[in-house]
Nucleic acid binder design. Structure first.
Lengths: 236, 236
DNA sequence: AGATTAATTGTAATAATTACACTAATAATC
DNA sequence: GATTATTAGTGTAATTATTACAATTAATCT
């Protein structure tokens, strides 16, 4: 038994993977393996299979095309212009991930020519993938202003100057060191470690790590219009 | 020419329409017009047609099933469990709207038994529609804490007590009048009108309206971690 | 005219944000 | 081993935002 007289459509998933290498933002791309636009640079995409959800499809596709697994992927929206794919109609649902480039460098598998491109030097992308990336970057900027999600882009232990560089890179601006660190530390999300990172300076900068318990509590908290003590519960 | 060996899937759109009547939040539902679950309460849903985008499908479906048109609908996410519809696989993309119940009361058309239900008295919904509503409400709470989007739920002219009631209703709490109005007015988004609303009190409360130009500028502004003067441009 | 109802308004204490520049630690160099 | 170069780390005062708290005002109703 089926719904009659309805058109069935190909559903695809495209994964937008942002990375940070301590200096700049990069985007992970692959060379598309099939026609049309074979060999052209593309997000990691594929078709949803009959027995998998979109989340499952996104994880599978990312793993198949890059080797990356156990990455947090967040749905970002559907792209559905009827002519967005020249071959036939495809509705694409996008997923976004933020990863620490160095941490996952090993996992990334060369079979499909996955490659990191600095955000300022992206090649021409197929179909509407550039639009997907633009929207994802704007959403990331927006979210990062409220939520300390940029931690996800860093290794487990990171320094305050690294964090600051990351925020400055996202917004193309400079912040005052004292005010920036004060604000970050006042969140109580950071734990100072005993070791220093000696790679990027002579003096060396102390490592910090994310206080995961605090983080999970804090990320559920609503700010601004709602006085903090009024909050009961918010799922997301 | 088509992509070979791929499964095509029904794609549906479901519209979650929240309303506020000055006192409480309500959800617009219809009685489903076809099997399975015919006559059961449901979000306004339908299948995406070959030549329309998802946004277009959402507008069309909302209009066909309720008469509502020119409503701002925002995509909220896909629901894709393979077994979410017992007849056959359907991937549903949800859209959320906020409207002023009284303003649109006229437009709402009884052909399909569209009806407002108070959020605390929702009937059993088909499939995973209750889950969609729960997620939408949480996202609304979350967004409203940062963005003054609740204006969209009110008529063009509204009073400060109405606004406060709306915020209090969303969070099940009470705010201090003085602090609430001070905060709202400090956004410079509200313009005081000359007339008063005399319906809800003897003294009458002045009407305010949204300063649309200011609103569009402000909604693009990022707060918190990013000092305001640093912002260049953020699309969303 | 007086009672009733809900709208409107201010202030003082506290907390957060901003602007601003020198000192500390280490490695590299002479 | 002293000097230089480099980046990390830190404090304070002025301003602005937030909070807690209650009397007065405008209009209608009796």
């Amino acid at each position: 038994m089926k719904y009659s007289n309805q058109t069935r459509i190909l559903v695809a998933v495209d994964c937008i993977v942002f990375g940070f290498d301590g200096t700049e933002y990069k985007l992970l791309l692959i060379q598309r393996g099939f026609a049309p636009e074979k060999e052209k640079w593309s997000l990691m995409g594929g078709f949803v299979q009959p027995e998998e959800s979109l989340d499952e499809a996104a994880s599978r596709i990312l793993k198949q095309l890059t080797g990356l697994q156990d990455i947090y992927l967040e749905e970002m929206g559907a792209f559905s212009r009827p002519d967005r794919d020249p071959i036939e109609r495809v509705v694409a649902v996008t997923y976004v991930a933020l990863i620490d480039i160095e941490k996952y460098q090993q996992q990334i598998n060369d079979d499909f020519h996955a490659r990191w491109f600095p955000m300022k030097e992206l090649p021409k992308l197929i179909f509407d993938h550039q639009e997907m990336v633009d929207i994802a970057l704007n959403k990331l900027r927006y979210k990062a202003a409220f939520h300390p999600i940029l931690f996800e882009l860093l290794p487990e232990k990171f320094t305050l100057p690294q964090l600051q560089t990351m925020y400055e890179g996202l917004y193309n601006t400079k912040f005052d060191k004292r005010n920036f660190t004060r604000k970050l530390l006042s969140t109580n999300l950071l734990k100072k470690e005993k070791e220093k990172d000696k790679l990027s300076s002579k003096k060396g900068a102390f490592y910090y790590s994310l206080d995961v318990k605090q983080y999970k509590e804090t990320i559920l908290t609503i700010q601004n219009i709602i006085p903090l003590h009024e909050i009961t519960s918010v799922r997301e």
